[in-house]
Design a protein around this nucleic acid. Structure first.
Lengths: 215, 215
DNA sequence: TACTTGATTAACAATATTGTTAACAAAATT
DNA sequence: AATTTTGTTAACAATATTGTTAATCAAGTA
């Protein structure tokens, strides 16, 4: 009956290590992270880290897998309802995406860096992208084609559009330390900045889609 | 008279180390880079690396300083002629910027990662940004204000515009491994892709600037 | 109670990585 | 030619970092 108590403490240690590892890995990357530092931050001896996760690489894998799952669930769940308009779909993509980035501002930079440093170690993430991105792009392209055929927007490549959206959404947060220095007060209030980017990026993309007024 | 020969060999070793260091640091970051690997790649004993550069950190500093200088010279040399039009200024900024990125595709990711990992170690770079970015933005804002007062474009914030341009230009290359997987054939031919981004991004920004057609 | 199991600790082992040194070689300068 | 400076090497020292092990503890179970 006390198994719950036991179990709780058990998970607690494991969880504390995972949380500390997440912080350390996300801010310093795999190479820069120290297992000793992670153990210290978690408040356990560093042997415990090896007891629970065996190696640094396996611990990293756990963190990466969790984050990949999180990203997948947060992002790749729009564009599926075929009857909602292109405008609304785009607004939804941008809003969801920016909300996720606001909640996980370090994630994009971390993912890209790790993939760059060692494709093998980060393959779990790349695989998921390879599966879901084409689905999302396919759905978006259909909506664009339909809207374009009705003269409501220009005929554009959904891949290019997704790239534009991702660029506009992600870059400012990825490059935050540089942007803060270069743009000073523009990024001072994080919430305000996030809201601004939502509006601004939606506007930018919609303008890109608007039929050229030459008739 | 043979001093030239000697001098050449001398600089040659130093230069070979620097080149190898550049590759290693840019692809693996400071923490992931190994001085032994750098020495091997340069074809010298690893004691030579310490003889010439004393420490790993000092070697890193040399690479970072060089790259910062390169970036500064390539980017912060537009927008100064007050008589060239806003359109042409924007085209010039985008073209110069993308040419530079095409020639140094790893640089943005590297810079941002290093700043993120250790602001102190990368402060040389941040300082330069802090100096030049505001100048560039100031010049651009003046052109926008003028064009807007003449009804040629909307009144927009130059900081936001620069952020949009930087995002659209940099992200695709920074996230290349992910973009390649997500967008497949779009990025297959690098030259073609670069040319496409030049056109596309210019178009995106110009459309953003166009006065809303409601009169 | 004796036994088993999982969690924990402290000390240690193994290795990787950076950095140093002493001896030597080659060239330049006096 | 003698001396000084610079470059080079190989071996080593120092430290950081990951990973292991044997002993101990706590809790539940036969």
């Amino acid at each position: 009956m006390n198994k719950d108590n036991n179990n709780h403490e058990l998970q607690d240690t494991e969880h504390k290590i995972l949380e500390a590892a997440e912080k350390e890995f996300l801010s310093k990357g795999f190479a820069g992270a120290r297992t000793t530092t992670i153990a210290e931050a978690a408040g356990v001896t560093h042997a415990m880290l090896h007891y629970y996760f065996r190696t640094k690489a396996k611990l990293f894998d756990r963190v990466l897998t969790e984050k990949t799952k999180l990203l997948k669930e947060a992002i790749f769940k729009s564009t599926d309802d075929a009857d909602v308009s292109l405008e609304e779909t785009i607004r939804s993509i941008i809003d969801r995406h920016l909300d996720f980035i606001g909640a996980n501002p370090e994630l994009p930079r971390f993912m890209i860096e790790e993939i760059y440093n060692d494709q093998e170690r980060a393959h779990i993430f790349l695989e998921q992208i390879g599966i879901y991105a084409p689905l999302m792009i396919g759905a978006l392209q259909m909506k664009i084609d339909k809207a374009a055929s009705e003269g409501k927007c220009r005929q554009v490549d959904a891949r290019t559009l997704m790239l534009d959206i991702a660029s506009l959404n992600i870059f400012s947060f990825m490059a935050a330390p540089v942007v803060n220095v270069a743009l000073e007060d523009l990024t001072a209030d994080p919430d305000k900045f996030l809201a601004m980017r939502k509006k601004e990026n939606y506007d930018t993309i919609i303008r890109k889609l608007m039929p050229t007024p030459k008739d």
